[in-house]
């Protein structure tokens, strides 16, 4: 059985990537929300926000990238939900394939789709004046953090995808994830927030991830933020993976 894990995953990945290339609108709608927020914050609110020595678009982009991923993974849950609903999931499960290849194909598809969306958002940011002197190593580090973050949220998305009763329910879990960056250092520095809010903002995962990416973009020393960020991403990834696989095993008898 397991000898086919990679082959079967590749075949199923090819299938769901076709879904993406044939519904380009899902990539567009994934990027519209973060791009609209970026326009709103840079050209409307940005003038009134003190972001220190960096330009506001440079300040804002890391948080926008996380919002892009959070809105993108809703589609992973949705696609998985459709597979469950249509019966094709059961067809795959009754076939002699490596069973873990079904969720893995969806997760890898999510990674590809989100990376495309992230590139689109970065290109728009460049048009809006985003500049970074970061070298190849720093960009690779940013990509690495974003990939880890995407994988963690995608495995999280697998859970509602497998267990939701309606399509709306499958996608709804991502709303709080999109909201989380607002109570973090993504849009404004945390030091103007009142005590309890500030305490939450400074200790939730988004702040450390945003700070780490921002430091990499602005060529500042990343300090402890990057380790906090990596710990959050890896911890979330492991927990989400374990929960998703447990849900999956329950679904397949």
């Amino acid at each position: 059985m397991t000898k086919h894990v990679f082959g079967d995953t590749a075949v199923l990945l090819g299938r769901s990537l076709r879904h993406i290339t044939r519904s380009v609108d899902t990539v567009i709608t994934t990027t519209i929300t973060p791009i609209a927020m970026m326009l709103l914050f840079v050209y409307v609110f940005g003038g009134a926000i003190k972001s220190g020595s960096v330009s506001y678009v440079n300040y804002l982009l890391p948080g926008i990238l996380l919002i892009t991923v959070a809105s993108g993974i809703a589609y992973t849950a949705f696609r998985l939900f459709l597979d469950m609903k249509s019966g094709i999931f059961e067809r795959f499960q009754s076939m002699p394939i490596a069973r873990s290849s079904v969720p893995w194909a969806h997760v890898l598809t999510s990674l590809v789709a989100n990376l495309i969306s992230l590139v689109v958002v970065v290109l728009v940011a460049l048009l809006m004046g985003f500049r970074s002197g970061a070298g190849v190593a720093a960009w690779l580090a940013v990509a690495g953090i974003l990939i880890l973050f995407t994988l963690a949220l995608t495995w999280l998305a697998v859970i509602p995808g497998l267990s939701a009763k309606t399509a709306d329910g499958a996608g709804a879990f991502s709303y709080p994830l999109i909201f989380l960056p607002f109570v973090s250092s993504a849009f404004v520095p945390t030091d103007t927030m009142p005590g309890p809010v500030r305490a939450f903002a400074e200790h939730q995962p988004v702040t450390s991830i945003v700070n780490a990416i921002r430091d990499l973009f602005t060529q500042q020393p990343v300090g402890t933020d990057i380790w906090t960020a990596l710990t959050w991403c890896l911890g979330l990834l492991i927990a989400a993976y374990a929960l998703a696989m447990a849900t999956y095993r329950r679904k397949i008898a």
């Binding site: 079967d8 299938r15 076709r18 044939r22 249509s86 076939m95 394939i97």
Partner: peptide
């Protein structure tokens, strides 16, 4: 199964190729 378990977004031929490759 009770509901035609086919991939709506793929073509008929692609559905068949998919299953043949998975087997």
């Amino acid at each position: 199964g009770q509901f035609a378990a086919v991939d709506e977004i793929l073509s008929g031929r692609e559905n068949l190729v998919l299953v043949a490759r998975l087997r």
